[in-house]
Simulated scan of single mutants.
Amino acid sequence: MSNTDQFMQITGCMNRDLARRYIRKSGGFLDLAIDNYYNHENPAASSGTSMKQIPQRQAVEELNKVFDRYAEHANPNQMDIDGTIAYFTDLGIDPEKDVEAIIAAYTLESPSTGVFTRDAFVKNWAKVNATNAEDMSRYLHQAKHNSKLMDLVNKFAFKYALEEGKRKLAVEDAVALWRVIYNDDFAKIQEPSTMSIFINDFVASGKSGKESISMDEWNMSRLFFSIPLPELEHLSEDAAWPVLMDDFVDFLYQRE
């Protein structure tokens, strides 16, 4: 399959000339072309290009029927953890591994882990014209290529995973969450990266000395992970990075 065909299949873009233009501007790099497409196009609209447009009333009716299949018996306006697991299974999503589960929680305004409400479910899926499992799954898969959206999902994920009354994530919870959010990146790694060494060799191993991760450390990690390993040696000590990131650079280059 050509880069153009792959681009169109992943993004739902129906314009072959537009697809070729994004690939050409990205130097032939497919992942970069997809990322640029989502950063310049409306993600909801781009999803809709490959879906049949459905009248609002019909969409609401269909979405209520979908929700009914997974709703609690005691509270038909809420989907509990068992219903959510069944829902994700039907979407082909593993909530223990796939970032699409976190994107769904963000998109559908989940109030707590494993819980969805009828109003938010119907309202938000109707906005993007996704009324069945196939369209929902496609939307979530496409959304993870939108870097601006993923910045928001990343910030949401920290608060979503916090225990009630806590302000920091336990290290083991942060590591597990990072591994879900960056699951695709881990799968594509062919050599060590800033992200993989930071998460696996520094934090998860206990060498960071941290027992918990703050919101600032979490939010800054996304930008930090984008820095190529060779550039970390010259990272300015005057830059406003959390101490955890400075400690990682010292660890990496065995500085005293």
Rank of each mutant, 00 (worst) to 15 (best):
L140Q: 04
W178A: 06
A161N: 11
L140M: 14
N146H: 15
I189K: 06
S147Y: 13
F156K: 04
E134V: 02
Q142E: 05
K159M: 12
T131Y: 01
D135H: 03
A174R: 05
I213Q: 06
V171L: 02
Q142A: 15
E217R: 11
Q142D: 08
G165A: 01
A130G: 00
M215T: 14
L169E: 07
V153A: 06
V175I: 11
V180F: 00
Q190M: 14
E164D: 07
S212F: 11
K207E: 11
G209F: 03
R138Q: 12
D216I: 05
E134I: 02
D135T: 03
S214W: 12
A176P: 09
A176D: 14
N154F: 15
D135L: 04
A133R: 06
K166A: 15
G209V: 05
R179P: 07
R138T: 15
Y182I: 00
V153M: 05
I199D: 07
N129H: 12
N132E: 05
L162W: 04
A157P: 09
A143R: 00
S208T: 13
V175H: 01
A174K: 07
M136C: 03
H145V: 08
L149A: 10
V153C: 00
N132Y: 05
A157N: 09
T194Y: 06
K188P: 04
F158C: 00
E211N: 15
N154M: 12
Y139M: 09
D184I: 08
N200T: 10
I199Q: 03
H141I: 10
A204N: 03
A161C: 14
D151V: 10
D173S: 07
A187K: 09
P192D: 09
L152K: 14
R138H: 14
Q190S: 15
L169W: 02
E211A: 11
N183M: 08
R179S: 09
T194W: 10
V203A: 01
S205P: 08
R167T: 15
H145W: 14
F186D: 04
Y160W: 06
I189R: 05
Y139G: 07
S193N: 03
N146M: 10
A161E: 15
N129C: 13
N132P: 06
K148Y: 13
I181W: 05
H141D: 10
M215R: 13
